[in-house]
Design a protein around this nucleic acid. Structure first.
Lengths: 135, 135
DNA sequence: TATAAATTTGTAATGATTACAAAGTTGTAA
DNA sequence: TTACAACTTTGTAATCATTACAAATTTATA
C-alpha cells in the first residue's frame, strides 16, 4: 500500500497540488489495478469521504491524465476506465466475464515504421475475446 | 461507386435483408472512407431519404457490425465512428485537424504471442498525435 | 488577519445511444 | 388476390456517462 506521504511527493513532482481528495483517488488507482470506472472509484471512496462529489472524481482524473500520471482506457464504448500504470502496455477484455487483462507490447512497434511522418503521442491497443478461464 | 445491385448481393451473402435504407447506409460507408459518425451519415442521407430516422442508422450499423461487414472505431471517447474496411488495420487521429488516418498493421502481431491462452476476436489499435500536415 | 487563488461540491445541462411501441413494408400460403 | 405473419422503419421518450457552471469551502500568500 502506497503511503500518503509518498503520493504527496509524487503529485507535487508532477505539478499537482496534493489535496486530500486527489491523494485518495490516486492511492485508490495505485492500489487497485483492475481498471476501475469513475463510478466504482466514487462508490469506493465516498464511504471514507462522505462529502466526496463525483464531479471531483471526474476533475481529478482529467487532471491526472493531463499531467501524465494516469491512462484513460476506452476499451468500452460507453464508459471510461483508468489506470495508474503508465507503462506501454495493451489491454484485453474478456467478453464473457468482463475482466480486463494487461499485456506487454513488443518494443518493436512495427506499425510505427510506416508512420515516420507522424508524431505519435498516445498508443492504445485493445483486444477483445475470451480469457483462459472462460474459453 | 458501388452499384446498388452489387451491394444487394453483398448484404444477402451476409444474411442481411437488403432494404433500401440498408443499401444506402452501406454504400455511403463503402464510398466514404473518412470514418463517419452516425450523425454525419444521417445528415448526408436524409437529404435523399427524407423519411430516414436516426434510429434506423443506429440499428443498421449495429446489424452490419454483428454480421461482420463493418468495424466500429472508438478512437474518441464520446462518439463512435464506422468503417467498411474490415481488413486488419490501425487508426491514427491527428489532435490538431481531427482527421483519422488508416495504417497497416504488421502481420507479426508480437503481442499476441504472449496471449496464447486467450482467444482473440477483435483487435483495435489507436494512435494519437500530429499528422504530417499539422506537425 | 485579510484577501486572492485554487479546490470541492451539487445541480443542471449536454449529447450519444438505446428502449419501445406504433406504423409501414415485405414475404408467403391459401 | 387476399390475409396473415414476420420483418423493418420511424418518432418519441428514456438512459446514462460526462461536462458546465456557480456557489461554497479550503488553502496559499501578503
Amino acid at each position: 500500500m502506497r503511503t500518503i506521504e509518498k503520493t504527496d511527493e509524487y503529485l507535487k513532482a508532477h505539478g499537482i497540488m496534493p489535496s486530500y481528495q486527489r491523494i485518495r483517488v490516486f492511492d485508490y488507482l495505485h492500489n487497485n489495478r483492475n481498471h476501475p470506472t469513475v463510478d466504482s472509484i466514487y462508490k469506493e471512496l465516498v464511504g471514507d469521504i462522505p462529502s466526496l462529489s463525483k464531479t471531483t472524481v471526474y476533475n481529478t482524473l482529467r487532471l491526472f491524465n493531463e499531467k501524465g500520471i494516469i491512462l484513460i482506457i476506452n476499451i468500452e464504448d460507453n464508459e471510461s476506465r483508468f489506470d495508474a500504470d503508465i507503462s506501454n502496455h495493451g489491454h484485453f477484455k474478456c467478453k464473457e466475464c468482463g475482466e480486463i487483462f494487461d499485456f506487454d507490447l513488443g518494443k518493436d512497434d512495427l506499425h510505427i515504421l510506416k508512420l515516420e511522418e507522424f508524431s505519435i503521442d498516445e498508443q492504445h491497443v485493445y483486444l477483445k475475446g475470451r480469457c483462459p478461464k472462460c474459453k
